[in-house]
């Protein structure tokens, strides 16, 4: 089956997520179709918003002076951001379909890509707050959105992947574990790169 109904699902998942999950459970989307027609475009939003915001206002880490970087490094950082998001989403979908065997879930890779896209969609939309590049304000918007995404994950896994709620809960928790580790690795990696001399100057 094609991916036509998917644009309608993406919108519906924002206000009737359970219904949208049930509809998605009935179809077998092609992974490439979902990825290139929908996911990629959603993943473009955060880097674009952050590029515009950072170029115009500069990031506020907290202290008074905003951190203004030259445009070409901003573009590089935004590309890196985009690639990290794509990498994160695809690896999550791969891990999810790899786990599917353990949890008796549907192995259709397209479904995993579609599910992770729907779960991440609120975050991609909420990233509009990057236009206002203040770390605190961003946290204020993105943390509640992240909680919503986690809720979608717990609700979505058993429905979309057609597995009993018991196993769905286990699988969703395993994915949460993976996402937490991925997030903190990203944080650690950027700190290590920064102290090794990539990025603004540090006196180490």
């Amino acid at each position: 089956m094609g991916t036509e109904i998917y644009s309608h699902l993406l919108i519906r998942s924002l206000y009737q997520p359970i219904d949208a999950f049930q509809e998605l459970a009935k179809v077998e989307p092609s992974p490439m179709g979902v990825l290139f027609r929908y996911t990629i475009w959603l993943l473009l939003l955060p880097p674009i918003f952050s590029l515009i915001g950072a170029a115009n206002f500069g990031w506020r880490l907290g202290a008074d002076e905003p951190l203004l970087l030259p445009t070409n490094s901003l573009v590089l950082i935004s590309i890196g951001y985009f690639l990290a998001l794509v990498f994160g989403l695809i690896t999550t979908a791969i891990i999810s379909s790899w786990m599917a065997a353990t949890y008796g879930a549907s192995a259709n890779f397209g479904k995993h890509v579609a599910l992770i896209t729907i779960v991440g969609e609120p975050l991609a939309i909420a990233s509009v707050i990057h236009l206002f590049p203040d770390v605190f304000v961003n946290l204020l918007v993105l943390i509640p959105t992240m909680m919503w995404s986690m809720y979608l994950l717990y609700k979505g896994v058993p429905i979309v992947l057609d597995t009993p709620p018991e196993r769905g809960m286990l699988m969703a928790s395993s994915l949460v574990g993976w996402l937490l580790v991925a997030a903190v690795s990203l944080l650690g990696l950027s700190m290590a790169l920064w102290t090794l001399g990539v990025g603004p100057l540090l006196g180490v």
Partner: peptide
């Protein structure tokens, strides 16, 4: 989650701003 993420943001900001030259 709120606790961890807010402290990540606070800690990374502190660490980088302290060392920033």
């Amino acid at each position: 989650m709120l606790y961890i993420v807010s402290m990540w943001a606070a800690g990374v900001s502190q660490g980088l701003l302290w060392l920033s030259v």
